[in-house]
Amino acid sequence: MKRSLVIISLFTVGLAAVALVVGGWSRVLEGLEVSAATALRSVFMIFLSFVIMGQIQVLLSKDVLDRWLQRFGGMKGILIGALAGGLFPGGPYIYYPFALGFTGKGLPFYIFFAFILGKNLYDFSRIPMEVAMLGSRVALVRNLVTFPIPIMAGLLSQRIFASRTLESIFLQTGERDGADQHNS
């Protein structure tokens, strides 16, 4: 979060300087007016987005999603994996260690991959923010168009790697040891 804030601040200052050079203070003020108008338009929607996000976080615990992923295989496993990814609460500091926790538990790579791509693309707690900022049409088309991707990626990975696990395909010995330690 801190890194993102630094990046945003640097870009903002840089672009404000460009606006000043290109169009003077009036262009900078124009930019700020656009920002203020967007903020006013979206403030309630942003608030609601966070309320929804918090409720999803307490509704679906990590244990529930862990049980779902371990129970199914094949197409059903891919679908459950992708949906569990979309429902999984929290940012990268939470879901990557959670996903690494599957090493050594025999979860086929294709389900693991569907889970990661499901988190990346579906992330249901992000949808309210997407609707708030981009409008319902763009959010609807985007979500419909990208819905098949985690499933197709899971099926493709199943075809390539069959039921092999993440650690048997991608992790080197050292990384595998690290993953084992993570599990213990």
Binding site: T12, A19, G31, A39
Partner: peptide, 19 residues
């Protein structure tokens, strides 16, 4: 926690839009 980031991004977005 995210408020400073949202405010920063909104200002940046405004600058992008006029530039």
């Amino acid at each position: 926690r995210s408020a400073p980031l949202i405010v920063g991004a909104l200002i940046l977005a405004g600058m992008i839009e006029v530039l």
